[in-house]
Design a protein around this nucleic acid. Structure first.
Lengths: 145, 145
DNA sequence: ATCAATAGGACTGATTAAGTTCTATATAGT
DNA sequence: ACTATATAGAACTTAATCAGTCCTATTGAT
């Protein structure tokens, strides 16, 4: 349950590879080879991440992708939002009045609260944390107190 | 993203209805009418929740379903787990070695940490909280400190 | 017996996710 | 200017999952 899509998983993997050389540009082909993921998937994801502002891109020969900011300033929440869209635990949490039974339904504010808690947990982990085991552990343990 | 399935949403709604009369038994038909959900869906969900231990069931005429324990002792995490299966943010988080690239993949422990944080957030909200706005707010705010 | 209820499984259709392919555009090097 | 190597964007196909229905069996009170 609450499963993250494979694409998000892949995106995280790719960003972690890039975080090892945060100031260099990386080509889609090169990242596909290093990550072992299918080239079309890698290309699709990098395009998406660039459009969403997590990566910068340079076209043409000797072009490629680079991190838009330091790995410490890219959170898991941002990666998820880039690939899967805004966090919304339930459909109605997004606000649009598409739910048939809004009248007697008292659950909405509660789902929003839960969603907010998830957001906080996801915000607390950065891309840099993902590459360095200790940091994430510490930050998340603080949350649980 | 991280969207909960409609079934889980429905299940929560049904349990909230039952929580209003926590010691009485409720029939599937009656709950379908009160909730406005399609009877087959309600029946399916109640069967599932009973199998998972959240509800007790009584067959035969004058039978029905009842909460297995007090609303305070049923958490949103339990409801989610009952309907959607164990919480696993990524496939590999479940442990089975199905992932092709386990060798160079350092993300697994981090996803597990994030998963754990989500679990904590979901554990902090009970079915009783869902029916009484204030309690959930307070509990979740404590988590965010 | 009969009626009202749950138990369990099989099945179908709808929706979404995952992955591929094709065409257009930009840029460095020669 | 030409060519090779990149990214940009969109359309398309297939696979997987979710949502919902239906049917048959079992249980128990009247």
């Amino acid at each position: 349950m609450l499963r993250i899509s494979k694409l998000t998983d892949y995106a995280t993997l790719l960003l972690m590879h890039m975080a090892r050389a945060p100031f260099e540009t990386h080509s889609a082909r090169g990242l596909a080879q290093r990550s072992g993921l299918p080239p079309p998937v890698v290309a699709k994801l990098l395009k998406l991440l660039a459009r969403e502002g997590l990566l910068t891109s340079q076209r043409g020969a000797a072009g490629g992708y680079g991190l838009a900011r330091a790995p410490e300033r890219i959170s898991m929440a941002q990666i998820l939002a880039a690939v899967e869209g805004p966090l919304a635990v339930t459909e109605c949490a997004l606000g649009r009045g598409v739910c048939d039974m809004e009248k007697g339904c008292a659950t909405r504010p509660h789902w929003q609260l839960i969603g907010h808690a998830l957001q906080v947990a996801l915000d607390a982990v950065s891309l840099a944390d993902m590459t360095v085991p200790r940091a994430a552990t510490v930050r998340l343990q603080r949350l649980e107190k």
